[in-house]
Amino acid sequence: MSNNVLTVSPSPHVYQSTTVRKLMYGVVIALLPTLAWSVVSFGIGAIIVTLVSVISCILFEYLIERFLLKRTPSITDGSAMVTGLLLAFNVPANLPVGIIIIGALVSIGIGKMSFGGLGRNPFNPALVGRVFLLISFPAQMTRWPIPKGFNTSYVNAQTGATPLGMLQEKGEATVSKVMESAPSYGDLFYGQMGGSLGEMAAFALIIGLIILLYMRVISWHIPASIILSTGVFTGILWLVDPTQYADPLFHLLTGGLLLGAIFMATDYVTSPMVPKAMWIYGIGIGVLTVIIRVFGSYPEGVSFAILIMNAFVPLLNRYIKPKRFGEEVQHG
């Protein structure tokens, strides 16, 4: 008999090849089409913002883990890169570099590491950073460059309002008046409107969604519930008074709704575990978004809606249980 020393471990003895790292890089891959389109539309600004954001997120994660938490840095798991990309996608393409770095510090430092790192943060880190910037630097954060093909200048971009901004500022005018000056649906679909770096191109985001679903990184429940609930809610409003409220398609294609529904709300750590809870979470985000957009003072509400629903996730996880096998028949 051989004298090999055998390893003894509890079953199972085989594992799926999926790892956290693979899932995170799956998200990165799914974000690439949008990034590419942003570079084409915004030019050099998109590249600089994205690079600064990603690099500073990774750097802050490394520094905090290495020197503050004193543990082996886990930057290779890709989560910092995802946060960096998502933060970049949520800011205008001409945001001053200093502000981006502050945003990355807030995202990683406050949004993620203060809770202990990946898996422990209750709020989506990129959104924490984004909302912090929105409140601290409202002027810079709402100066949207217009996508006019590849622009080689970083600061001197031509800026304009977002479609949702126009809607908010309409004053006494009717929605149809605003619609006349707003971009067409085709333009919206191809991202020909003012907005954050990664939120305008609906088609690129949908390609991302297909990649995520195909790679089984996320399940369809959250994006579907957000899009459906937003559509239904705005649809009802629109049917009640089309002169006051924009139509559902307009709401779905503008602002950060698709980016939020596909990439931000589906963040593993801050979304519920059970399909039923995912529906509640998604519907909550959809309804809150519409309320903030239509009745609130901010033109856009996806970030706030997601953060608010993030806070409900522990509660949803606690009280909403999956249907157990053999549950219906109660056994004495």
């Binding site: 999926t18 899932l23 790192g117 750590v269 979304s271 519920p272 575990m273 999956p322």
Partner: peptide, 11 residues
């Protein structure tokens, strides 16, 4: 690693 709450086990 730490649980990332991906819910794959629930699935």
């Amino acid at each position: 690693l730490h649980c990332v709450r991906c819910a794959q086990c629930v699935d």
